[in-house]
């Protein structure tokens, strides 16, 4: 018995590796991230330090929140172009209401609820009226951006003591620094993971992405789940706005312009297929960290200009998309 056990476990290990091509894209992202960190570490001093890792999370907490919501929508085979604008709307609502003297305990729920309502409107337009997700969320994007300027055309600083105290809280775990924003973002990732893998809602999301018609024929609650996915995305975007306001201590209508592209890029680099049905929230987290690492490397390089970020992200997107395409071709 002692002789057979190791053999069996080795075979089992080999078969799990072979059986899960679903994990390959995420593994690819992980390898790229590790490679970039390793190359950065050999090129620059002070690159592989806890402070760089901490800042990676602190600077991208809002993007993590957006990517979690976007993962839900993309898994159903849809897309949400409004997240950048909803983020801006949320920062503007928070800043203007705090300026008007409302308490934090009321302001934050109101801002997040605004995001949920916009998400609900998207879901209803898409599910009930059959509008394309691209068009519906594009309208939402314009709507939220315009609303920002109606509420406040100028940048509003946030000086509310309760909010700044909440945003300013941080904790040192050894040399790693965590802020409230990072904690909220990571909790959001954890919730997203649990909801997607351990609830009926999450499994229906995957089923819709895999084949909406089949999901419907199986008697799953397609309509409710699809609307729900957009509500999740709107809520996450508003939460992202809250985290963004925590980082910037201000609300401005031009926050997060084109940030929806970063969120989509992070989700795609994280291994989620835009056709829906395949992907993981943790992959999206890795995708955000990869984008963040590119920016960090370019900052460390110093003499490289900021536009290289865009080019590198584009090239990385290309590599991942071609890789995914090759994988999916081999499967069929």
């Amino acid at each position: 018995m002692t002789a057979t056990t190791p053999v069996r476990s080795a075979a089992g290990w080999a078969s799990t590796v072979r059986l899960d091509p679903r994990y390959l894209p995420v593994l690819g992202t992980f390898v790229v991230l590790a490679l970039m960190l390793a190359i950065g570490g050999t090129r620059y001093d002070n690159f592989l330090t806890p402070i760089v890792y901490s800042n990676l999370f602190i600077n991208n907490a809002h993007l993590i929140a957006l990517a979690v919501g976007m993962t839900f929508v993309i898994l159903t085979g849809g897309i949400d172009l409004s997240v950048g604008s909803v983020l801006a709307l949320s920062t503007v609502i928070i800043a203007s209401l705090l300026e008007a003297g409302w308490p934090v305990a009321v302001v934050l729920p109101v801002a997040v609820l605004a995001g949920s309502v916009i998400g609900l409107a998207h879901g209803v337009m898409i599910q009930v009226f059959g509008v394309q997700p691209f068009v519906a969320t594009l309208a939402g994007m314009f709507f939220a951006r315009g609303l920002c300027f109606v509420i406040a055309p100028e940048s509003i600083p946030i000086s509310d003591p309760a909010f700044t105290a909440l945003a300013g809280w941080d904790s040192w775990m050894g040399y790693f620094r965590t802020t409230t924003a990072v904690v909220i973002a990571l909790v959001l990732v954890a919730i997203g993971f649990v909801v997607l893998h351990y609830t009926r809602f999450g499994r229906t999301v995957y089923a819709i992405g895999g084949g909406e018609q089949s999901a419907m024929l199986m008697g799953l609650a397609v309509a409710r789940t699809k609307v729900g996915a957009y509500v999740v995305s709107g809520t996450c975007a508003a939460l992202g706005g809250m985290l963004f306001a925590m980082g910037n201590r201000s609300g401005y209508a031009l926050n997060g312009v084109a940030m929806e592209l970063d969120a989509i890029a992070a989700v795609v680099i994280g291994g989620t297929l835009l056709t829906g049905g395949t992907g993981f929230v943790l992959g999206s987290l890795l995708g955000v960290l990869t984008l963040g690492t590119i920016q960090t490397v370019i900052q460390f390089e110093g003499n490289l200009s900021s536009w290289w970020t865009k080019i590198v992200i584009g090239v990385l997107l290309l590599v991942f998309v071609v890789l995914q395409r090759a994988l999916s071709l081999r499967k069929t």
Partner: peptide, 25 residues
Amino acid sequence: ISPHVTPLFMALVVVTVTLLQSPRV
């Protein structure tokens, strides 16, 4: 009106036209 608010009107036009063209309506 401030040109920054244009997107709001754009959204209203888009929503109106797409909803009127939608199969349900």
